[in-house]
C-alpha cells in the first residue's frame, strides 16, 4: 500500500505539471495545443544537451529549458496562432495549426537531436528503501518535490501577481478583460509562453528519470489531454486534480491488476468515457464552457 501511495503521488505530481501548461493555453486562447508533448520533448532535449552533454549544472540547464521553451512559445503565439485566431473564427483552424506544429517540431527534433533515446546522469544517487515495503530512488523523490514546488509557485504566480490576474481575467472573459484595459495580445503571448515554459520545465525535470526520445511527444500530449478532460478544460485546479487522479489510477491499476495483463489503461479509458458521459465538463469545468 505504501508503495502504491508513493507511486501515485510521484506520478500525479509529474502528470499535473504536464497538464498545467496545456490547460493554461486552452483557458487563455481556446487552443487545443497538440504540440504540447513536442514542447515537453524539446525541454528534455535542451536539459540533456546542457546538463548531459556540456556538463552545465542541472539547475542552469533547467533554466535554459524554461527560457528556450518560453521564447519558442512566444514566437509560436505571435507569428502563428495570433494571426490565425484573428483571421479565422473556426476553431478547427487552430487545431490544424497545432497539429501541423506538432509534426514540424517532431521533424526538427529528429534532425537536431536524432532518433536515439537520450538520458542524463542521475542528479542524486541512492534509493530510499523502507523494509522493501516502500522503495523510491532519491532522484524521484527530489523530482516529485520540485514538481510540487513548481505547481505551488505557478499557483502563486496566477493568484498574487499582476500578470497572473491579467491572465485569469483573460481566461474568464476576453472581451471584458480588454475593456478593463488588459493588453490582450501581450498577455496572450505571455500566457502561451508560460504554458510552453511549463512543458519545458517538466521535460527538463523528467529527463533525469525517464530520459527523452523523439517519439515521446504524441503520447505525452494524449495523456495531458486526458488529465485536462478529467479535471475540466481550461481550469488550473482541474488540471492538477486530473493529473493526480490519473497518477493514482495508474499506480493502483499497475499494482493490483498486473496479473490480468495490461488492462490498467483499458480500465482508465473506460472510466473516462463513462465519467465524461455523466459529466462532460470534467470535475471542475463549467457546463457552459
Amino acid at each position: 500500500m505504501e508503495q502504491i501511495l508513493a507511486n501515485g503521488v510521484y506520478l500525479g505530481s509529474q502528470y499535473a505539471m504536464i497538464a498545467l501548461g496545456l490547460t493554461l493555453i486552452f483557458a487563455l486562447m481556446n487552443v487545443l495545443n497538440f504540440a504540447h508533448g513536442q514542447m515537453y520533448v524539446i525541454g528534455g532535449f535542451v536539459t540533456y544537451t546542457f546538463y548531459g552533454q556540456w556538463g552545465v549544472p542541472f539547475v542552469l540547464a533547467l533554466v535554459m529549458s524554461c527560457v528556450t521553451l518560453a521564447i519558442l512559445g512566444a514566437l509560436i503565439e505571435r507569428y502563428l496562432f495570433a494571426p490565425v485566431i484573428k483571421g479565422s473564427a473556426r476553431e478547427e483552424s487552430t487545431m490544424l495549426l497545432a497539429a501541423g506544429i506538432a509534426f514540424f517540431l517532431d521533424a526538427v527534433i529528429l534532425l537536431v537531436f536524432g532518433e536515439k533515446q537520450r538520458g542524463v546522469p542521475k542528479i542524486v544517487d541512492g534509493v530510499f528503501n523502507y523494509d522493501f515495503r516502500l522503495i523510491m530512488p532519491y532522484d524521484r523523490i527530489l523530482i516529485c518535490v520540485l514538481a510540487i514546488l513548481s505547481i505551488v509557485a505557478f499557483i502563486g504566480l496566477m493568484q498574487y501577481t499582476k500578470t497572473g490576474r491579467a491572465l485569469r481575467a483573460l481566461a474568464q472573459d476576453r472581451t471584458a478583460a480588454q475593456l478593463m484595459g488588459v493588453n490582450v495580445d501581450r498577455y496572450s503571448m505571455i500566457g502561451f509562453a508560460l504554458g510552453a515554459m511549463l512543458a519545458g520545465l517538466v521535460g527538463g525535470l523528467l529527463v533525469t528519470i525517464t530520459g527523452v526520445n523523439l517519439g515521446m511527444g504524441g503520447p505525452t500530449s494524449i495523456k495531458a489531454f486526458m488529465m485536462v478532460m478529467i479535471g475540466g478544460a481550461g481550469v488550473i485546479s482541474g488540471a492538477i486534480w486530473g493529473g493526480i487522479i490519473l497518477g493514482f489510477m495508474e499506480a493502483i491499476g499497475l499494482a493490483v491488476l498486473y496479473q490480468y495483463g495490461d488492462i490498467t489503461y483499458l480500465l482508465i479509458f473506460v472510466s473516462l468515457m463513462i465519467f465524461l458521459a455523466i459529466r462532460p465538463q470534467g470535475l471542475m469545468g463549467k457546463p457552459w464552457g
Binding site: Q3, M136, P137, T210, G211, G215, T220, A251, Y258
Partner: peptide, 11 residues
Amino acid sequence: DTTDFTPVLTP
C-alpha cells in the same frame, strides 16, 4: 509509451 517503469516492475 511508458516512461517510468518503477510501478510496472514492482510486481
